[in-house]
């Protein structure tokens, strides 16, 4: 059993770190990373990100971001992300959602690449020299049938927040199968959970169907409301007021610095770490 700070300590400068959409995000760990001042992360967004990527960029933690999009959803655009991309402060590898899934699936199978339809004629293909056009080797009668080959994408670390783990170290993810894909593709997986339950969920057919076996999990910390202010599906909604407050403050560089000072650098350690 670890603290969220101990989880954050396992993520070094320059790590290729996979994060998940705009829910089930390990935000306590993310705040700890910004507080520590981690640098030069290569963020892999599966397949997009919201406030988590925005906060890491705002904190100066990111060198490269690989994503299909970053936004704060109904709250609006992600201001630090937009500024950093416009100014060239971070390098962006633009993609499209199913491409990132396919690349992770290639890594999970140990394959060098995965093919994907679509993309041909999109500007994405022009900006991604690592996405290559090949011929479908199974095309009927040798027909000309170009298809895009995407390189396998294996993050060094996958990081997310889940409803619960058990004493055996298994993690229950519910209806978020992409979290399992992340764990399979990454070299190691770090997880925070709302709760640790006794027993072994692998002995329960119902629970086991939505679980990631301990085999894939490098470390777990208990972090109640650890996805805040983002939602944990089935448990709590997003904190819209907190996200709107951030979005309003982050419109200017000064506003953002003041917000970071008040909410990250000057804020107490996470509730879970204090326990």
């Amino acid at each position: 059993m670890q603290t969220t700070d101990a989880i954050a300590a396992r993520i070094p400068d320059g790590a290729k770190l996979a994060v998940f959409k705009d829910r089930s995000c390990a935000m306590d760990v993310t705040r700890a990373l910004v507080r520590r001042g981690v640098r030069d992360l290569h963020l892999v967004c599966v397949p997009t990100s919201g406030f988590q990527a925005e906060l890491l960029i705002a904190g100066g933690c990111v060198a490269t971001i690989e994503t299909s999009g970053v936004s704060l959803g109904e709250i609006g655009p992600a201001p630090a992300f937009a500024r950093a991309v416009k100014s060239g402060a971070i390098r962006i590898m633009d993609s499209t959602c199913p491409a990132i899934y396919a690349q992770l699936q290639a890594a999970e199978k140990g394959n060098p690449f995965a093919p994907l339809r679509g993309l041909i004629g999109s500007g994405i293909l022009d900006t991604r020299p690592d996405y290559k056009l090949i011929q479908n080797p199974f095309a009927e009668d040798g027909r000309d049938d170009p298809i895009v080959a995407l390189p396998a994408l294996a993050p060094e670390i996958a990081l997310f927040h889940a409803p619960f783990a058990d004493e055996a170290g298994n993690v229950w993810i519910g209806r978020q199968p992409e979290l399992k894909l992340m764990a399979h593709a990454a070299a190691e997986t770090l997880v925070t959970v709302e709760d640790i339950r006794p027993g072994n969920m692998m002995e329960d057919e119902t629970l086991a169907a939505a679980a990631i076996p301990a085999f894939y999990i490098a470390a777990i910390a208990r972090a109640p409301r650890g996805a805040w202010p983002l939602p944990l599906p089935g448990h709590y909604a997003d904190d819209e007021a907190a996200l709107r407050e951030y979005a309003a403050a982050a419109k200017t560089g000064d506003g953002l610095r003041a917000w970071l000072d008040a909410n990250i650098h000057g804020a107490p350690a996470s509730p879970a770490a204090a326990e």
Binding site: T48, T67, G69, A78, D94, T96, A99, L116, L119
Partner: peptide, 26 residues
């Protein structure tokens, strides 16, 4: 869905292309 100006969006940068580069084809 990406932005205005030279890539990666030097005049305006929006969120990104999301699933469009696949779904528009399929």
């Amino acid at each position: 869905l990406l932005g205005v100006g030279d890539y990666p969006g030097t005049t305006a940068r929006w969120s990104g292309s999301f699933g469009s580069a696949y779904l528009y084809f399929m």
